[in-house]
């Protein structure tokens, strides 16, 4: 087990190094300098050059990557926080510590001051959506997979496919029209404060609904296919022939076997929900991680993009690890080597 965990951790580090370097390299080719974007179109070229120098954005790619990694690991202090630059960048945690994601050029704040709060907001949104997606998709998947081609299967399949094929921005606008404008029972945006006269839980209803509508049908379809496969297996027929009730067959024999493949899919939804909620967050003006990442990418705020990348990689690797553990529980034949 210890070796297994160590291997996973090593893989995670390797992925992080590769991903972070790739992001650096790709940002190199995106248009527009950060200095120009910070100062706006009407600054003179000389002013832009000054800021570029101060931000040390004109160093070669490898030098900047090395510096970023050094700052992150706490080996060197963040040079941008040196008061002599005149940038007024100050991190209350100090300039040199492990996990220093550096300074966001977009928000002019330490990345650590911005990103965790936003990630927390998205985690609430994603967590609630996930809590609804799992039971809904399992119930829908099992019911339609029990009897392939039956009336129930057809009906549920139509619902699932319809919902999955409506993009988030469309269902978002649709729900807003229904529940905000025509029948005003819910708030139309989710700034997560109560000064607007709506409670925070009421602000979560619509964004969570959009995510659930978009996602649960897809997972249900995966479970359905897996269920159909299992229901055709000889041991199910044996169980039915020996006189077990359908309920016993499904819960005792089919479900556990049918969950192995969808389990991976379900865990992948966590990654999707954390980094893929950009559209939903935009529609409802939700102050989350996705919107931060979008703004940072458009601006070329490399420190924020890198931090977001590392966090997403960490989440992906963790869910993968949880997935491996889950397989072991679901299928005793899978043994650790």
């Amino acid at each position: 087990m210890a070796i297994f965990v160590a291997k996973r951790l090593a893989m995670m580090l390797l992925t992080m190094v590769a991903a972070s370097f790739l992001v650096f390299a790709v940002c190199e080719f995106t248009p527009g300098s950060v200095a120009r974007k910070s100062l706006g179109p009407f600054a003179t070229q000389e002013q832009v050059d000054f800021l570029t120098k101060k931000l040390r954005a004109d160093d070669p790619l490898l030098v900047r990557y090395g510096r970023w990694a050094g700052v992150l690991l706490g080996i060197i202090p963040d040079p941008l926080q040196d008061p002599s630059t005149g940038l007024n960048f100050k991190d209350p945690r100090g300039a040199q510590y492990f996990g220093n994601f550096g300074y966001s050029t977009l928000n002019k704040l330490p990345v650590n001051d911005v990103i965790w709060n936003r990630l927390g907001n998205t985690a609430i949104l994603a967590g609630l959506a996930f809590l609804l997606i799992v039971p809904l998709s399992i119930v829908f998947g099992i019911l339609s997979g029990l009897k392939e081609g039956g009336v129930l299967d057809r009906l549920l399949s139509v619902i699932c496919i319809t919902f999955t094929s409506i993009p988030e921005f469309a269902s978002g606008v649709f729900l807003v029209t229904l529940f905000v404008i025509l029948w005003p029972v819910l708030p139309g945006t989710s700034p997560l404060d109560t000064e607007g006269g709506w409670s925070v839980p009421s602000q979560l209803v619509l964004p969570v609904a959009v995510l659930v509508i978009y996602d649960f049908g897809y997972v249900a379809r995966m479970i359905r296919v897996s269920m159909i496969g299992v229901m055709e297996k000889p041991f199910i027929r044996t169980a039915v022939l020996k006189g077990m009730s359908t309920r016993q067959v499904v819960i005792g024999h089919a479900l556990r076997n049918a969950m192995i493949a969808p389990f991976t899919v379900l865990l992948l939804q966590i990654n999707f929900l954390i980094s893929g909620v950009v559209v939903t967050e935009l529609v409802f003006a939700y102050p989350g991680f996705g919107r931060l990442l979008l703004d940072a990418s458009l601006f070329g705020d490399i420190a924020t993009i890198e931090a977001a990348t590392l966090i997403t990689v960490a989440i992906a690797v963790t869910t993968q690890f949880v997935g491996d553990l889950g397989y072991m529980l679901l299928d005793p034949r899978i043994r650790l080597r």
């Binding site: 905000v180 404008i181 819910l186 708030p187 139309g188 935009l282 409802f284 003006a285």
Partner: peptide, 16 residues
């Protein structure tokens, strides 16, 4: 309210 023009409309509609 972000960059999405729809969010402005929705926020006005629900008097946020």
């Amino acid at each position: 309210l972000g960059d999405n023009p729809g969010a402005g409309i929705a926020a006005m509609a629900s008097k946020q």
